[in-house]
């Protein structure tokens, strides 16, 4: 508590001030740097991971007299086990992995990504639970078989939970810059646009190193799968396909806001609605120093589609976060975005 405020203020005409200790530390500045994530969103993000962490230990405790010791916990392509773990150790591991992932998701959560949390936890929880189910009533762990169809079951469960997560995100109010009362600063770049004039800005941008890296990864995965265990191919595909999709993107600024999407697929995309935007400008981005690499990067107070170091369009959002995308001619895009956001706020 601020010492100046420690005296009892019982005067009835004082405006109701926020009483949380943190609130006094933030001055009444036009731009808030505090990262505001609704508590409800954090709970909804953590919830599926807690459930996923509980599944396997519960199953192991429930079936303790019907499971072999050790359990078969890792399987080859043919469904024959090639890895074994004690029940207690597996229960601890199966709880720790979703909890650790859940902690990371809860820190960096976002309303539009809530479905991802439910998808991830659904996949992991189902896969781990199915492993225990495979071990049920087996004489020894070596007799256990795990069909590949379990992957499809896990994907199905993940998809259903992703839909549920997407539905639940409606319980969280969207961030709205107009609701926070933040206006675009008068010094920000503007475009001279007539009252009835419609405008849009569109630009494709590509990263050659990222394309090369993704293709290299894919080739390496194929090679590794031919010589070694097949999951290496899955891993390579899981890294290379998003990498390829991110290597060529189209950035669009129009009456809907800012949209960044791959030129290969229409979804997923990054979209910042006009109503969430509190300002846009151009700045130089250093991929490694600021974002620790290339691609879609998430940091504590900013996220970005970073394809190179250099000119980038930077957008401040009503929740205090910044979104950047490296794109040429970003100055025009920033000016148009400020103009359109201001026009949108006036309506």
């Amino acid at each position: 508590m601020n010492p100046a405020e420690s005296r009892p203020s019982s005067a009835p005409d004082t405006p109701p001030a926020p009483s949380t200790p943190g609130a006094q530390a933030v001055p009444d500045a036009p731009v808030r740097f505090g990262l505001h994530v609704p508590f409800r969103l954090r709970v909804l993000t953590a919830l599926p991971f807690v459930l996923a962490a509980a599944v396997t230990p519960l199953l192991i405790a429930l079936w303790s007299d019907r499971l072999p010791d050790p359990l078969a916990t890792h399987f080859g392509l043919d469904g024959v086990p090639d890895g074994f773990t004690g029940p207690t150790a597996f229960a601890v591991l199966a709880a720790a992995v979703p909890l650790a992932l859940g902690a990371a998701w809860t820190v960096f959560t976002h309303r539009s990504a809530l479905w991802g949390a439910w998808l991830t936890s659904g996949l992991i929880g189902t896969l781990l639970g199915l492993v225990v189910r495979d071990n049920l009533d087996a004489a020894t762990a070596a007799d256990v078989r795990s069909p590949l169809s379990h992957l499809a079951i896990a994907l199905g469960a993940g998809a259903v939970l992703a839909l549920a997560g997407h539905g639940l995100s409606r319980l969280v109010p969207p961030e709205d810059a107009t609701a926070t009362g933040i206006r675009i600063s008068p010094g920000a770049p503007r475009l001279d646009l007539g009252a009835g004039e419609a405008a849009g800005w569109s630009r494709a941008t590509a990263s050659a190193p990222l394309t090369a890296l993704a293709l290299l990864f894919l080739a390496g995965g194929v090679l590794a799968a031919l010589l070694g265990p097949w999951p290496l191919l899955l891993l390579a595909v899981a890294v290379a396909v998003p990498g390829l999709a991110l290597a060529r993107v189209r950035v669009v600024v129009d009456r809907h806001g800012l949209t960044v999407r791959s030129t290969l697929f229409p979804r997923p995309r990054v979209h910042v609605p006009l109503a969430e935007i509190t300002g846009a400008d151009v700045r130089e981005v250093r991929a490694l120093r600021e974002f620790g690499g290339w691609g879609y990067r998430v940091r504590a107070h900013r996220s970005g589609v970073v394809l190179r170091s250099g000119e980038a369009l930077a957008v401040r959002r009503g929740n205090g976060r910044e979104f950047v995308v490296t794109v040429p001619d970003a100055g025009t895009a920033a000016a148009l975005l400020n103009t359109l956001a201001e026009r949108d706020a006036r309506l």
Binding site: L193, G194, G196, E197, A198, A199, G200, W201, S202, R203, D329, T332, L336
Partner: peptide, 9 residues
């Protein structure tokens, strides 16, 4: 590339 159109024109 910037596109702008004025329906009143």
């Amino acid at each position: 590339m910037l596109f702008r159109v004025d329906p009143a024109s």
